[in-house]
Design a protein around this nucleic acid. Structure first.
Length: 284
DNA sequence: AGGATAGCCTGCGGGC
DNA sequence: TGCCCGCAGGCTATCC
């Protein structure tokens, strides 16, 4: 799923279920799906926040951290096909297709009463959970290689992190150390809206172009969050609902179709091993 | 430094 | 209908 807008929308839909809730039971169904940071031992129920009360859901890029009152923290990464779904255990149960590939499960309570379950599914298993002992360890150790969050990236930050780089701008945007949260969809979309070809070398971008690019990144991510993210196949939020931003994509997934601005056929190339779609006329 | 490749997995759609 | 192939939102390791 899994780029910034999808993780942020998940965070927002998960908050009402998790904030203030206590984890009665944490179950790991696959030992290789959750690890303790800095060790090679699989996570125990305690590492998975059993007995803890959740006080905060914090996001950086595509990572989501579940933070407990006592400092215990669990980093959630969705990989390609991860889903975190709240099952309220009332009449609206999680649909049958959502019952397969569940690798972790948390049973919740609130004020001593049952408050449903949270399931982590991930058919492709590129995602996972990492436990850290404190928020400090999360920020300064586990997340230390993540660049500034893409949702609030400034031109100055982007410029600083691209200076001197001779690689193409598209693979640079996918580098989570440059800025955190942009993946293949939103890299193509932001480059389209800023009128920049994905193949342009970072070192050749003008100050004005970088300013436009930073603004386009913020704008396209904000708009996608407003639409509940993009659902190409797997993505759903905590309630099991799909996003709708895929209907508003300008270039991603539209190779050969007319550019929504100029009408010319959109071109598809492979750049850094990733399919890349752009308009040869609107992007210079 | 950064490009290319392979690998980790499942599931889907297209072509035959 | 069914099988094989390629491809997919992420990320890491390794080799050049």
């Amino acid at each position: 799923m899994p780029e910034l807008p999808e993780v942020e929308h998940l965070r927002r839909t998960l908050e009402p279920c998790l904030l203030g809730a206590t984890i009665r039971h944490a179950h790991l169904h696959r030992a290789d799906f959750a690890w303790v940071h800095g060790s090679d031992r699989p996570a125990s129920p305690r590492d998975l926040l059993q007995g803890a009360t959740i006080t905060e859901l914090r996001r950086r890029g595509k990572h989501l951290a579940i933070i407990a009152k006592d400092g215990r923290t669990l980093d959630v990464h969705l990989g390609m096909s991860g889903q975190v779904i709240h099952d309220a255990c009332d009449d609206a149960a999680v649909a049958a297709p959502h019952r397969t590939h569940v690798h972790a499960r948390w049973t919740l309570e609130r004020n001593g009463s049952p408050a449903g379950e949270v399931l982590f599914r991930d058919p492709r298993r590129f995602g996972g959970l990492v436990a850290v002992e404190s928020v400090n360890a999360l920020e300064h150790d586990l997340w230390r290689n993540l660049g500034p969050d893409a949702l609030s990236i400034t031109a100055a930050q982007l410029s600083r992190n691209l200076t001197g780089s001779r690689r193409a701008i598209k693979p640079a945007l996918l580098d989570q150390g440059v800025l955190a949260g942009v993946g293949n969809i939103y890299a193509d979309e932001a480059l389209f809206f800023s009128g920049i070809r994905p193949t342009r070398r970072c070192s050749r971008l003008t100050r004005a172009e970088i300013t436009r690019l930073a603004a386009s990144i913020r704008r396209v991510l904000t708009r996608s969050i407003r639409s509940g993210g993009s659902t190409l196949r797997d993505y759903v939020d905590a309630r099991g609902s799909r996003g709708s931003f895929q209907d508003l994509h300008a270039v991603y997934g539209r190779a050969g179709k007319p550019c929504r601005r100029c009408g010319r056929s959109l071109r598809s190339i492979v750049l850094g091993q990733r399919t890349t779609v752009f308009c040869t006329s609107c992007q210079k």
